[in-house]
């Protein structure tokens, strides 16, 4: 984990309430796809945990949804302004387990961390299929960016306005080697039921205190006992999680 000051170099809305922010600064603590950063916002006590969409040597891209006062204030920030952040947080996706044809499933603001994962898998010569689930057409973001990486992309919308009508589980391919996912808990639960024959890793979301394992604010019960979403996760082997099915 590192603490640093990051400068906003790009900040654009992707939909009505989802924003993409590119920050320049020290990215050396980021080591794997699926990690997150904790951003301090002026006037707010706790930092905001935001998943990392992509990063390189000099910049980090995040995509966040305005859900409360903090993210609302963040959405008003301008290019050139700076943010204090902790980076290199969390245990991300293990790309070694993917097999040749991994399936990546994202729902809503669960989509962003899959971007760097898809990029990493493609660089390793894998052939990922990406399913991106949204409620309706005007909530869709990043489908073209995933296509531009070279991944096979399937979009689902609950209202059927774009792509496959229904949920991500209505669009599962017949064959895949492994499943990676991030999204709302009802989606993860349905996906768990639908992919019980194969291995996979799911990224969880939880309200956090510290984000680095100190406060036990974000614990989840697993088959191996209580685990911290921020430090032991956010990515867990799906078989380790407790599912009420």
């Amino acid at each position: 984990m590192k603490q640093g000051i990051y400068t906003i170099v790009e900040h654009t809305p992707l939909t009505r309430d989802v924003y993409r922010m590119v920050l320049s600064g020290d990215t050396s603590a980021m080591t794997m796809p699926g990690q997150f950063m904790e951003i301090s916002l002026p006037g707010f006590f706790l930092r905001r945990p935001i998943s990392i969409c992509d990063y390189d040597e000099k910049t980090v891209t995040i995509i966040y949804k305005v859900v409360g006062q903090g993210t609302d204030a963040m959405a008003r920030m301008k290019k050139g302004e700076t943010l204090d952040a902790l980076t290199g947080l969390g245990h991300g996706f293990d790309v070694e387990k993917s097999g040749d044809e991994p399936l990546l499933v994202g729902g809503g603001v669960g989509v962003p961390p899959l971007y760097n994962l898809a990029k990493t898998l493609l660089a390793a010569g894998r052939k990922p299929t990406v399913i991106l689930g949204f409620n309706k057409a005007d909530e869709i973001f990043y489908a073209r960016e995933f296509e531009a990486l070279g991944a096979r992309v399937i979009v689902t919308t609950v209202d059927g306005s774009v792509g496959v009508k229904g949920f991500v589980t209505n669009a599962l391919p017949e064959r895949f080697s492994y499943v990676y996912s991030c999204g709302p808990m009802p989606m993860l639960r349905a996906l768990y039921r639908a992919t019980q024959g194969s291995g996979g890793q799911f990224s969880l979301e939880e309200r956090m205190g510290c984000g680095f394992g100190a406060c036990m604010g974000c614990s989840v019960m697993t088959k191996e006992g209580g685990r911290r979403v921020c430090k032991d996760g956010p990515v867990f082997d799906k078989e380790v999680l407790e599912w009420q099915i």
């Binding site: 707010f44 706790l46 205190g209 604010g217 974000c218 614990s219 989840v220």
Partner: peptide, 23 residues
């Protein structure tokens, strides 16, 4: 002890609330 169900954390002006429950 595992402690309480989540959410266990909320923010307040100049502070926070926790209900970890002695995990």
């Amino acid at each position: 002890r595992f402690g309480n169900p989540t959410p266990r954390i909320a923010e307040t002006p100049s502070g926070m609330i926790n209900a970890v429950g002695m995990q």
